[in-house]
Design a protein around this nucleic acid. Structure first.
Lengths: 258, 258
DNA sequence: CAGTGGTCTAGACCACACT
DNA sequence: GTGTGGTCTAGACCACTGC
């Protein structure tokens, strides 16, 4: 019984009398999550081998394995047979733009190059009540706001506003946003140590107003997909609010249900 | 070595010389899938216990377990500790409308009753080229087309067209569509033995035309969410094409990314 | 109580990648 | 060859359900 070296959830019940029991592998998973959060292993790096971790936590390899299995299922880790287990990253993932579900109507392939980014605005400002709520901040807290247009093959396709907590993204510049080679989320990992792990989107159909229409080169009133996204880090804290307007003339938002 | 009683994938290589090796638990998974497809266990019923299946296939419980784990992850089976493993069903699932991601803006709860269904049309017709392609049929093959409006709290919210393969849905009536208590997909399971397992959606923003506007009680030109869904059964064959127009005034399409 | 799924272990062997 | 993750086994024990 190795539980002496682990947070002993099984030892005592809660004040309510509920068992509050958690399996060993869940405890291991929580410990691994802590290490990921603390940056002990960085995105793209390998974590220790299963045998090593089993020794460290004084459990069997199978138990470590099950913990890693769940983290891999959550896309936090990536297993590669014969090589090791790696911290997932938005960079160098064979799927660029993991969170972007807008694809061309024909040939969903990624035969097209990366999106061209045109930064319209990048400034420090204060959170409105609504933005503060989404980001778990207080009204008036510092935030960085970015407005940009993404184009594919020269066609302006997405008009996007981003709001980021000012504390975590101190010093973000328009140049960084524009020039970083690779996904913006990869830049966040490298430059600010913020890895987005999960996101929620609310999608609506809206009509383009005059300004939006101009920026997307469509007629005013054109129906657009409004995609409001909140992205979360390891600890479940929201770290980005994003509102995008997608042209869906020759592209669509693709979703899988199961 | 129990493989003598199983399709021996490991025994011979393919003509190309590729190993074509598949783990035991994958073979078990395939066998379970066959039984599900064949209707050996019906939706809502329990499948044999892990020990029983292990004995039947001459493998260890752990191997059966891993096969079931994957099927449960795919939402084909549901495990209930102490009771057994059950075939997933669209009926009596604690989440009604598993494939419908349109939720009220406030209080995502299911505090609201089920949708009221208003069937506008239900007729046998012939597949156009486009519909045939989506359903894996040939142009001119028999299909059943249904047009309906779904309302929530008296507000018409979704205008939907369904196309179903005529062979599998012989005898479907407007009364069945309207009167069945519970999700339409549950009715498909009970009445036609067709269980939808997976679906793909293509989402766009469109403007309501005159007829659509009237049926949804909105102004012509109102932006609507166009949701085109193809739903698949066990064997991966498409069994339904559905095109919905969603009002997103006080509701939104909710999606989780990870 | 017996039966079910859920956890944990220890050990053997396989497939893959690097050196 | 060595080390990694991947599969498979057998057995023990735990937690939940229902008789």
């Amino acid at each position: 019984m190795p539980s002496s070296t682990l947070p002993d959830d099984t030892g005592a019940d809660t004040a309510q009398g509920a068992p509050a029991f958690s399996p060993l592998y869940q405890q291991i998973k929580a410990l691994l999550l802590q290490s990921l959060q603390a940056g002990e292993w960085k995105p793209g790096e390998a974590i220790p081998s299963e045998m090593e971790l089993a020794a460290r936590y004084r459990v069997s390899q199978g138990t470590v394995r099950k913990a890693i299995d769940e983290l891999a299922a959550d896309n936090l880790l990536v297993r590669r047979q014969g090589k090791g287990t790696f911290v997932a990253t938005h960079a160098e993932q064979h799927v660029q733009y993991r969170f972007l579900k807008l694809v061309p109507d024909s040939g969903d392939r990624d035969t097209e190059g990366p999106a061209e980014r045109h930064i319209l605005e990048c400034r420090r400002t204060r959170a409105t009540a609504e933005i503060a709520r989404s980001l778990g901040l207080r009204s008036g807290d510092a935030v960085v706001q970015v407005r940009r247009v993404l184009s594919f093959g020269g066609v302006p396709t997405i008009l996007e506003d981003l709001w980021l907590p000012g504390v975590a993204f101190k010093g973000l510049t328009a140049e960084q946003m524009a020039d970083y080679p690779g996904p913006t989320y990869a830049m966040f990992e490298v430059e600010f140590g913020v890895r987005m792990v999960r996101a929620e989107e609310k999608i609506r159909a809206v009509a383009a107003d005059a300004q939006q229409a101009k920026l997307l080169a469509v007629a005013p009133g054109t129906p657009l997909l409004s995609v409001e996204r909140v992205a979360y880090t390891y600890n479940g804290l929201p770290m980005e609010l994003r509102r995008g307007l997608y042209r869906t003339g020759d592209r669509h938002y693709r979703n899988e249900l199961s």
